[in-house]
Every structure is written in C-alpha cells, then in structure tokens.
Amino acid sequence: MTQPASLPAQSDDHSTTAGSGSAEETDRPLVRIRGLDKVFRRGSNLNHALSAVELEVSEGEFLTILGPSGCGKSTLLHIIGGFETATSGTVEVRGRPISKPGRDRGMVFQQPTLFPWRTIVGNIAWPLEVVGVPRRAARARARELLELVNLSGFDDSYPAELSGGMRQRACIARTLAHEPAVLLMDEPFGALDAQTREVMQEELNRIWQDAGITVIFVTHDIHEAVFLGDRIAVMSARPGRIVDIVDIDLTRPRAIEVKKSPELLAYHNRFWDLLRDQVHGSDTGSRP
C-alpha cells in the first residue's frame, strides 16, 4: 500500500507495510475468529444471531461472506469491527484479541456515512486530522485517495451534492485514509442501482489490487461474491454458522465480462443451491 513519507507512523498495533516482520508473522492469518457466539435478549426471548463461527483471513486476500438475509453476517462484521461485542469466542487481529473499534479495522457501512457538514475532501481528511496530521498534509493525502477512487474534482462538493455511488466511493476513500490492516465492507453496494453496482464492483477490484489491502466483504448477492472474492465463506441462516468455505479459481485481474463466463455461472449455481437449502432450513423467518 502506498504510504507517503510525510504521514506519521501509526500506532504500533498495525504497521501495514507488507513484508516486514518475521516469517512467523506473515504465516499467521491476519484475522482469526474462534468459537464466536452472539446472543441477543429482549425481555425473556433469546435471539441466537451467531453460533460457533470459525474463520481465518490471510493478509492481502479478498474474502466474501455470503449468506441469506438476516443470517447475522452484518453482526459478524460488526463484531470484527468492534462495534458489537461477542457473547463468547474471540476475534484476533495480528494475534491480538480485539473488542473495541480501532483504526486497524476500517468499516464501510451499507449506507454512505459521510459527515454532511463537511466537504468530500474534508470528510476524507478527517481520520488523518484525528491523529494529528496537520491540515495541509491531511488534505493532500485525501486528494490522493480521491484519485484512487476516481472522485477527483469533487473535493469541495458536499455529500448532499453527490450520487449514492459517489458517496460510497468517498466512504471507501475515507476508510482507506486511516490505513487499516483490513477493510470491512457490509453490503456497501446494496443501496445502489444495478448499473452503478457493477461499476463499483469493478472499481473495488481495481482499488483492492492497487492498494494491496485485505478485505472482508459481506453480501447476499452471489454474483457479487464470486466476482469479487478469492474465497467465499457461506453462512447458514440464523443462528449463523460458516457452512462452507470455497476457493474461487477465477483468474485475476477480473474484468466485468467474467460475470458472464461459464465458470462463474457454475460457481453461481453451486452457491445458489447451498443458499437455498439454508433459506428453507430456517423456520424462524425474519422479525422476532
């Protein structure tokens, strides 16, 4: 990942330069989840969202988590991000257990979450200002990131003036600004129309390759999961468990045409069957 010399080093939790550290460290998965359970209670009803989730994510890979709606995949992502706490089990990032939000795990939410009172460049520079980067340097870095996500020229616009797809791109840029070890994406393109969604998927692929970052991407869209991911972790319906992890053997870089290829279709059918079993298997449906 490009790291201009002008930026201060981040806290020692997450030096992101690949290749540093001993062979031990590069062998160890970046994120390791063990025995994760999450139970909610409302009054006397218990709601098992996640059940004994086990997962490992290697540095630099693009992992998609695929599952039917309501299976708890968002909750899983939020636990990794530290926005929720697990009822039991652990999440480790670089060998250290986490329980609170932190700059090392950057989250991109379903809805664009830019501060409406700041310009685009102000929004993207904000994470840098938080750690004390002087304004000018922060803005310069923000502009670089804007270029990375193809939003140059919209520096001084306000979020209200941008379309949904552009706002999400700005959110991605902002999350990249805090140089996270892993990017967590919670169905970020779900609110966009089909065409924009495809464009964004291509963009994301490109950004991921250019930035060399690790991504955990949650979605219920099979095409999206297969197109984007190196590996796909399939989740069951509530209570969510990982039922299968599949390597995707499509070559990289992947152009959008890959979506029509027979290989992808084969994967699609396979997952479609898997998911259908999950949806039919769940009897509780949606709202408690």
């Binding site: 909610f40 409302r42 009822t87 039991s88 408690p288």
Partner: peptide
C-alpha cells in the same frame, strides 16, 4: 456453550432487528 448470565438485555445495532 453459551454462558447465559453474560447475555445482556440488548438489541442488535444493525440488520433487520436493529
């Protein structure tokens, strides 16, 4: 196994039941 005493009275912050 889940230690039920640790399950607090809380609602999900994300997803359908938030």
């Amino acid at each position: 196994m889940i230690d039920e005493s640790r399950v607090a009275n809380e609602q999900p912050t994300v997803g359908e039941w938030a």
